[in-house]
Design a protein around this nucleic acid. Sequence first.
DNA 1: GCGATCGATGCGACAAGCGAATGTCTAGCA
DNA 2: TGCTAGACATTCGCTTGTCGCATCGATCGC
Lengths: 350, 350
Amino acid sequence: MATMPTTHDGSYDGARDAAQGGTRHRTHDVSGDAPVPDLSTVWLRVFLEVARHGSFTVAARTLGWTQSAVSRQVSALEAALGGARLFDRLPRGVRLTEAGRVLVPHAEAVAQSLHGAARELAALREVAGGRLRFGAFATADAALVPWALAAFRARHPGVRVTREEGLTPALLDRLTAGHLDLAVVSTTRPAPLEAYELHHLLDEPLYVAVPAGHPLAGHPRPVALGRLAGADWISGSPRPEGTLLDAVLRQGFRPRITHVVAEWTAKQGYVAAGLGVTLVPALAATSVRPDITLLRLRDEDAPARGVYAATVRGRSLSPAAQAFIGVLREAAVSAVPAATTASAAPVVPG
Amino acid sequence: MATMPTTHDGSYDGARDAAQGGTRHRTHDVSGDAPVPDLSTVWLRVFLEVARHGSFTVAARTLGWTQSAVSRQVSALEAALGGARLFDRLPRGVRLTEAGRVLVPHAEAVAQSLHGAARELAALREVAGGRLRFGAFATADAALVPWALAAFRARHPGVRVTREEGLTPALLDRLTAGHLDLAVVSTTRPAPLEAYELHHLLDEPLYVAVPAGHPLAGHPRPVALGRLAGADWISGSPRPEGTLLDAVLRQGFRPRITHVVAEWTAKQGYVAAGLGVTLVPALAATSVRPDITLLRLRDEDAPARGVYAATVRGRSLSPAAQAFIGVLREAAVSAVPAATTASAAPVVPG
DNA sequence: GCGATCGATGCGACAAGCGAATGTCTAGCA
DNA sequence: TGCTAGACATTCGCTTGTCGCATCGATCGC
């Protein structure tokens, strides 16, 4: 498996403090010399079973073993525990000694811990427990994530889900730092994301948002992007690189950015006022104000960006994360069908 | 706790799990299915150590193992836990997965239970914990047990001691029933006690209590028991068998019992009033009222009774019980030196 | 690029643990 | 009192598991 560490401090975040035990050395203890003996959990079943039945033979029968195995297991346990007899051997069975009586609750505690661990791990495996920490960018949060989240919570109510918002780069940083298990990100060029495992969700076309009265607003067919080369563009950043306009750059012309507006609602206002045009991802198409028209672009030069569920490469995916990727994919095809099939423009009639 | 009487009567109130056959393979488990507890405690140390250090190699160094052993232990653990990865293998070490993070507290709970068990067993072994339930007959409680009990409590303050009073037969019944760990009993003929392990404490001579004005009260030397053959005797039971007078029977004459008085203080009153004589064990010699004289009997026919710490034969003695027998022996030689050395009569001058 | 680091794995050896059979002890019974 | 049945302990082969050693593959820092 290929791995990609980038940031690995050699420790794990949660358990260091919980371990509380940089000072717990087993080599020599002060009083009692409690050596935490090397025991198999087999002894636990055997011990409790024998204690319950008061007989090696009966315990062996219920365990599916032979009597000699039980006898030796108990002997080994007694030897490992410092030689203290745990059972009095009687002619008609065995009987707990004081030491054995003392051991019973501890053995039961161990069994309970083991049982709880197995149960919790099983819950984790069946996506009935554990936690899922994910992040998503804004437009995904508008049209994709809610549906996926609803389906996930309905299907796996036991999973504790926490969500974050942020731009793709910030989410990836959170992912690398280990604060997120999964991030819904978008990119027009997957190259710089090679450090992450990208689970493809959908490729969403980018539409051009124009004011309702724009000359191209009534155009019956997808328009060529070049026809907008001379338009004023509104972007979230003064430089097109790294933004949605990155896709435009690869179409051969450098857009003239006249206004820098980051917030999505505000950006719509600028477009509606005729101050310029901007690119709108398909996921945001349903939340466009009515006095704006979205133009579909010609397939051959239509910019698109991919939406991915990103995880850290080499870091194991929890079953919950895998399941969440599944529902994200479902949401991608059901909530945004326009992204997969071409239809006539405009997408949303002004 | 249960299983007191004749060994296995049923079950102790405890965990009700187990009863799982095979099917521990990594097939799809239903949630809540019985766990797979076939693990060694070795994995526990390995897992926590690896989790703490974030490295197989470092964990191996601290454990005194090789890296390959740690690697395979972790792999075995992961396989035993259903195949879920517990660590992400990174180029610079390992990192807990979600499953591993879930497992940490359970593993620590197991370690804590094991540690607590070892500590409590060590305390038991060093007579620093546990319980001791003993019983004693009345005169032993007057002169022997208090000293032993004081020494024991001072030496082993951690042991929870419970005491019962009763006659020898009742104490032995309690012992057999499992309600006592040890019983201080007395007998003139140890034959019927063969079912028990008798730890000899002392042989106490029996004195004859006579009123201060009795003709033999001023006798300078031990008297022959036969000189009291014609006396009126006071006994705790209408028949001498099974009582202190049992010893007299073996001296050849059957005492004439004129008064039956069980309680010791009352019996003294009868003797002081000149209504008869009675036998007084040495342990009670110090608590005789001043108007009574105790006569030492000639060695050759002096009745004596043995005082023993009785335990159930074949039932293991707890270290606390063994220690208590020790202090009982110490108390026997220090508190009742008269029992071991012959001295001039009377024991207690009237 | 090259050495260093870290985990995984094949191999040989050793120890642990199992089943089957046998031994020992005791209670119950005639 | 002798016999039988039941229960735990022990011995004997054999399987299984686990460790150390050596090596491989992958990756990072210089």
